[in-house]
Design a protein around this nucleic acid. Structure first.
Length: 875
RNA sequence: GGAGGCGUAGCUCAGCUGGUCAGAGCGCCUGCUUCACACGCAGGAGGUCAACGGUUCGAGCCCGUUCGCGUCCACCA
């Protein structure tokens, strides 16, 4: 039965095999007909042609820990997997590919042919990311894998679009939007990243048209937009300009006349107090223009080049035009001054290009009515953010949300189901493609060329993946989902939108808890990014250290919502931990003769058995509770400490004394029992190695992945026995400590005399002292030996230990050391006495706390008395 | 401008609702080929928990102020 295992655990030869076992067993599958209580997570769908990065690795690990725990706890778990078509990201990739390989653009192919290319690309690379998710152990129900552009999701998207349109919550309109000149598409507000950039503040004279020679000076950071100016605004209360409101100015370089208007928007104290108004290229100006009914002049094209409204600047790139215009202003005597000015510039979150605010005809979601419900469900506590502070992040955003621009001038994505009649101009939004104009019967119909924002479909993810808009059993069983696990960086993009979508279309929240984690940074604390080249590839780490080590490294020491640094040192430490567990298991197996894992009867348990079993109970309670509270870092730490410290360093060492004796089988059974429970507690964190070890231990259940989660057994709480063992441990530590200080090698055994008032504690401890503290013998005495002067001594609360080793002991030093320890013990006693004589403390503090302090006092007194006796014996 | 986060051993970080909370890993020092493991064992050094003030019987933990570091949102042309 005993079986020899290699000394070093090899994840490479294990993980794929174990994963296949799980797949074959069907353990990942969720059953909507199950009577069990559901527990559901939908995966944040990675980009279909993306590559797994550390952020994914963390996100996946956290989800898998929750899912595996709940699965073992008897829930019907569904972890819904899938991928996102990632409109801009994917289209950019394919365009780059054909540009590089064929020197062509998407226009060379045309819409249909280009889309075929993208689909081919998706087919080619789309499975990579899924393979990678499997590598880190994700226990998703792969049979249900979805894609945001598959038939079902597309149907859901269309249903949502049409129904929102019918409710008046989607509209088309000419508004100012963010435009990326590189991606040549509109973006939503959330897709713009603002960054501080150095720039200039140009002060420019706009002369009055009355030929008086007077002028107003405006200040701008974007002089080229002057081509689109249709007014200059001042604050109505600004005394300096009261008399010029209503007058007319000549727009430099354009010879166009524009009015001076008064508007509250202008800040008197900023710049010159005069603001050029460019309705088509600034959101604030757009508003001002609406209030004053100003004309709109668009001066940029889709590539951010000056268009036909820009006169001689036509065709210039925006920055080229800026230079030319500044030069011409200077030449014309219009430029007053140029001063450096740092300002925030919006950039495209996908390509980093500076975005231009421009007016454009786009589709929008009317957010106000949707936001209302989305706020209520969070305020009512139906949806809870973990950690709680992100609730505020969410509500602040939702309270101030603008209408959502959802149309994108791309080809890859869900085509907007809006159809325009070429003859009568009738616009029809419909669930089925329109072939005939419902108004005039014309068959000359054009579908809107634009596609929807990628996030429009991901917003529906929790229910579109379950078959909505059909009424499916899956929805019935698993919606709303239990927890959503994601990083704080996509709360606005995704979490917020799922919430209002769920409320609107399902009439119910999409999830009960939003578990937010931080970013994985590099060893120096920087964001991992392609441009910095500081990203660490999770697959390489898995290859080198194993998925378990990576998972444990990612989750150890983290706390919800906080960023974490990734270091290979940490992975190495966790690889070592895996190996430690592996070798502990080897030890258990090498000594195995018992045929099953049944615990011995309580009366057959040794004190150390009772100690480890009591401690295991505590561990089970703590781990279970901390997972429940999403404190996964704490839970992982508790298991780590227990395995390494309590189980390996102490219990296994204790057990060695019994193996091979008549009691050996009892020891084995306790070893196995505890190990098995540890494997279960650790399984969600380190699924591969725990499953591998479990398979070679005697056990009743099949696979560990579906084994029952441990429960603390009150019948196995033995506080007295635990205290007894801890007293022995303290004694062993004290003796080891003294020996180490005196540099006594383990090979030199010493007699140990334990002077104690509680001899029962040490009656059976000789073998432990012999093995673990190099004791030749352990003698129990009531008082200090007569020749104590020649001995090394060590004092604990329960005993004073004497070791005859006169050659090594310097009596004076020994006395000085004991004296120092005595002072410490006395101050401890005084501290505790003071505390306990404080009536306020005794009356107000909880009884358990007071009792703990009393125990501390007792131990301090005992230690003090032991030290006093030792000192007396030495003098 | 607004919001929230962080500042704990040389380094990276835990420390949950205030009472063994002064911890872990790595690094460092001293021993050890002890029959599971040198990806190891035993022992050790090292922190006035950013500063100051307050609440409390009791504060890294709660409140306030200050200093330092990064984050998100908004955005003044």
């Amino acid at each position: 039965m005993a079986k020899e295992l290699p000394k070093i655990y090899d994840p490479k030869s294990t993980e794929d095999r174990i994963y296949q076992t799980w797949l074959d067993s069907g353990s990942f599958r969720a059953d909507e007909n199950s009577p069990k209580e559901p527990f559901t997570i939908v995966i944040p769908p990675p980009n279909v042609t993306g590559k797994l990065h550390m952020g994914h690795a963390l996100d996946e690990t956290l989800q898998d820990i929750l899912i595996r725990t709940k699965r073992m706890q008897g829930y019907e778990t569904l972890w819904m997997p899938g991928t996102d078509h990632a409109g801009i990201a994917t289209q950019i990739k394919v365009e780059a590919e054909i540009r590089e390989k064929e020197g062509k653009t998407r226009y060379d192919y045309g819409r249909e042919e280009f889309l075929k290319k993208v689909w081919a690309w998706k087919e080619l690379y789309g499975s990579n990311i899924i393979t990678q998710l499997k590598k880190i152990g994700s226990s998703c129900d792969w049979d249900r894998e979805r894609f945001t552009m598959d038939e079902g999701c597309s149907k859901a998207v269309r249903e949502v679009f049409v129904s929102l349109y019918e409710k008046g919550l989607i509209y088309k309109g000419e508004k100012i939007i963010n435009w990326c000149p590189s991606c040549t598409t509109a973006l939503s507000d959330a897709e713009v990243v603002y960054e501080d950039q150095p720039g200039f503040f140009w002060h420019i004279r706009y002369p009055f048209a009355d030929g008086s020679g007077r002028y107003l000076t405006i200040a701008t950071t974007r002089p080229e937009t002057l081509l689109g100016d249709t007014a200059v605004a001042v604050n109505p209360d600004d005394e300096r300009y009261k008399d010029v409101v209503g007058k007319t100015l000549i727009l430099p370089l354009c010879d166009r006349e524009i009015p001076v208007i008064a508007d509250e928007y202008v800040d008197k104290d900023f710049g010159t107090g005069c603001v050029k108004i460019t309705p088509c290229h600034d959101p604030n100006d757009f508003e001002v223009a609406a209030r004053h009914d100003l004309p709109h002049i668009l001066i940029l094209d889709g590539k951010a080049k000056i268009n036909e409204n820009g006169g001689k600047y036509r065709g210039m790139d925006r920055y080229e035009a800026r230079k030319a215009i500044v030069r011409d202003l200077e030449a014309g005597g219009y430029l007053v001054k140029t001063e450096p000015h740092a300002h925030n510039v919006g950039t495209c979150y996908r390509c980093g290009t500076t975005v231009e605010p421009i007016t454009s005809d786009q589709w929008f979601v009317r957010m106000a009515p949707l936001a209302e419900k989305a706020l209520k469900v969070v305020r009512d506590g139906e949806i809870r953010f973990v950690p709680e502070r992100f609730t505020k992040t969410y509500t602040n955003w939702m309270e101030n949300v603008h209408d959502w621009c959802i149309s994108r001038q791309l080809w890859w994505g869900h085509r907007i189901p809006a159809f325009t009649c070429g003859d009568c101009g009738e616009l029809t939004v419909a669930r089925e493609d329109v072939k005939v104009c419902p108004r005039c019967g014309s068959t000359h119909i054009d579908q809107d060329p634009d596609v929807l924002d990628t996030w429009f479909s991901s917003a529906l993810w929790p229910f579109e993946t379950m078959g909505w808009p059909e009424k499916t059993k899956t929805l019935e069983k698993f919606y709303p989902t239990s927890v959503l696990v994601t990083g704080y960086d996509i709360i606005f993009f995704w979490v917020a939108r799922m919430i209002f979508s769920g409320m609107e279309h399902m009439g119910e929240k999409p999830f009960g808890t939003v578990f937010i984690h931080g970013l994985v940074r590099d060893a120096l604390g920087r964001k991992m990014s392609k441009s910095l080249g500081n990203g660490v590839d999770p697959l390489e780490i898995i290859d080198q250290y194993g998925a378990d080590a990576l998972r444990f490294a990612l989750v150890s020491g983290i706390s919800p919502g906080n960023d974490t640094r990734f270091t290979t040192e940490k992975v190495e430490a966790m690889r070592n931990f895996a190996n430690k567990l592996w070798n502990a298991s080897r030890y258990v197996q090498m000594n195995l003769t018992a045929e099953d894992d049944a615990l011995p009867a309580p009366e057959a348990l040794a004190a150390e058995d009772k100690w480890i079993l009591s401690s295991l109970n505590t561990l089970i309670r703590e781990v279970t509770e901390n997972i429940e509270r999403y404190e996964l870092g704490v839970a992982a730490g508790k298991i780590y400490d227990f395995v390494w410290d309590m189980y390996c360093d102490w219990f296994i060492e204790f057990s060695k004394l019994r193996l091979g004796t008549p009691e050996g089988e009892n020891a084995q059974r306790v070893l196995i029992h505890v190990l098995e429970n540890l494997l279960k507690l650790l399984h969600p964190f380190m699924p591969f190695i725990t499953e591998e070890i479990y398979s070679s231990l005697p056990h009743e259940e099949g696979l560990l992945i579906t084994a029952a989660w441990p429960k603390a057994d009150p019948a196995l709480d033995f506080p007295e026995a635990a205290e007894e063992t801890e007293a022995v441990m303290a004694g062993i530590r004290a003796v080891r400590n003294r020996r180490a200080e005196l540099n006594v090698p383990p090979s030199r055994k010493a007699h140990v005399i334990a002077v104690t008032a509680r001899p029962a504690l040490f009656r059976n401890a000789e073998k432990f002292f012999a093995r673990m503290a190099s004791a030749a013998s352990l003698e129990i005495a009531g008082e200090a030996p007569a020749d104590a002067q020649k001995m090394a001594s060590a004092v604990t609360a329960e005993a004073a230990f004497y070791m005859p080793m006169s050659d090594l002991v310097d009596l004076e030093k020994e006395k000085a050391r004991l004296q120092k320890e005595l002072e410490k013990a006395e101050s401890d006693v005084a501290f505790e006495e003071k505390k306990l004589s404080n009536r306020n403390f005794v009356e107000k503090a909880p009884a358990a706390v007071v009792e703990a302090e009393r125990e501390k006092l007792r131990r301090a007194e005992a230690t003090r008395d032991g030290l006093l006796a030792s000192l007396k014996a030495l003098s």
